[in-house]
Structure formats: C-alpha cells, structure tokens
Computed example of a mutant assay.
Amino acid sequence: MAGWALYAALVLAALSGALGESRYEKFLRQHVDYPRTPVLAAHRYCENMLARRGVTAPGRPCKPSNTFVHASPEELSGACSAAADAAGLHSTAAALPLTACRLRGGDTRQPCAYRARQLQHHVRVACRDGLPVHLAGTRPPAP
C-alpha cells in the first residue's frame, strides 16, 4: 500500500510540474536542443527527441511537424530585442542550425515516423516579456 501512495505522489508531483511550465519553458522543451543531442541513427533523431521531450506520447496523436534549433536559449532570446515584423514576429539576425521534423505519410496515429532535415535558417519567434514563447517558422538566408 505504501508503494501505491508513493507512486500516486510522484505522478501528482510530475503533473503539477507540467502544469506549472511557463510558455518560455515549453518553448525550450519543444524547440531547443543545444548542443544537439547525439543519436545512434540520424534518421531516428526526430522520433527520439519528440518522445523524450514529451511532444509525442502513447495515446496522443503524432505532431505533424516540429523544429529543433541547435542554438543557445540566449541566442534565441536575442531575437526578441530585434524589431518585430508586421505580424509581430521577431527573427534571429543570423541563420542557425536546426533540424526540421516532418511526419511521414501524414498519418497522425502512433507509432510516429518522421523525416529529419538539417538546415541553416533564420528562426521567427513570438516573444513575451523579452523571451521567445512560440516558434512561428523559419526562412533560409538570403542568397
């Protein structure tokens, strides 16, 4: 019985931590992987990272796309001090290394299978209180 109480307490603690996650912390969890996490098979990077970061989970649909930026949180926060565009979004001054994950085949049922592309793009973010809270997209550097 004591084991069950300990398990219940751990689950409640984990849930309260997830519920207390700020938008910035969620942004970091879902989109920042710095330095880039090494994986044994490069083509498994997206599946591994999305599961490890809690973006995909058993019983939940697969996320159609997700981008991991391989730059420091400080570098991404620096974009928030740049002037916003007409949509209110901020772009990084430099192109940053990233991995773009796209769901293969479009079926959002588990198991999730992704295609990974390594890119060097500018990152567009929405900011709140000087911190990035939403990855709005990326764009290639000008030729």
Rank of each mutant, 00 (worst) to 15 (best):
M1R: 05
G3S: 10
W4C: 09
Y7W: 14
A8G: 08
A8L: 10
A9G: 10
A9K: 06
L12M: 12
A13R: 07
L15C: 12
L15G: 15
L15F: 13
G17S: 13
G20N: 13
E21Q: 09
R23I: 01
R23N: 08
Y24F: 07
E25P: 06
F27V: 02
R29Q: 13
V32G: 06
D33S: 10
D33V: 10
Y34D: 14
P35S: 01
P35D: 08
R36C: 06
R36F: 01
T37A: 08
P38I: 09
V39Y: 00
A42L: 12
H43V: 11
R44Q: 15
Y45H: 08
E47R: 05
N48M: 11
N48P: 00
L50S: 08
A51M: 11
A51E: 15
R52E: 15
R53V: 07
G54N: 03
G54C: 03
P58T: 05
G59S: 05
G59I: 00
R60Y: 03
P61Q: 04
P61N: 00
C62H: 04
P64D: 12
P64I: 07
N66L: 06
T67W: 01
T67Y: 02
T67L: 00
F68K: 05
V69K: 00
H70R: 00
A71L: 01
S72Q: 11
E75G: 03
S77Q: 14
G78I: 05
C80F: 08
S81I: 11
A82R: 06
A82D: 12
A84Q: 15
A87D: 15
S91F: 09
S91K: 04
A95I: 05
A95E: 06
L96Y: 00
L98T: 08
T99P: 02
T99I: 03
A100D: 12
A100V: 15
A100T: 15
C101N: 05
C101H: 07
R102A: 14
R104N: 11
G106Q: 05
G106F: 07
D107I: 08
T108R: 01
R109Y: 09
R109F: 10
R109E: 15
Q110F: 04
Q110T: 13
Q110V: 09
P111W: 06
P111E: 10
Y114T: 07
R115M: 07
R117P: 00
Q120I: 02
H121N: 05
H121T: 10
H122M: 02
H122L: 02
V123I: 07
V123F: 02
R124H: 12
V125P: 03
D129E: 15
D129T: 12
G130R: 04
L131F: 12
L131M: 05
V133A: 02
V133G: 00
V133N: 01
H134C: 01
L135S: 07
A136E: 15
A136W: 10
G137Q: 06
G137D: 14
G137F: 00
T138P: 01
R139P: 04
R139T: 15
P140T: 11
P141I: 01
P141C: 01
P141H: 04
A142S: 13
A142W: 13
A142V: 15
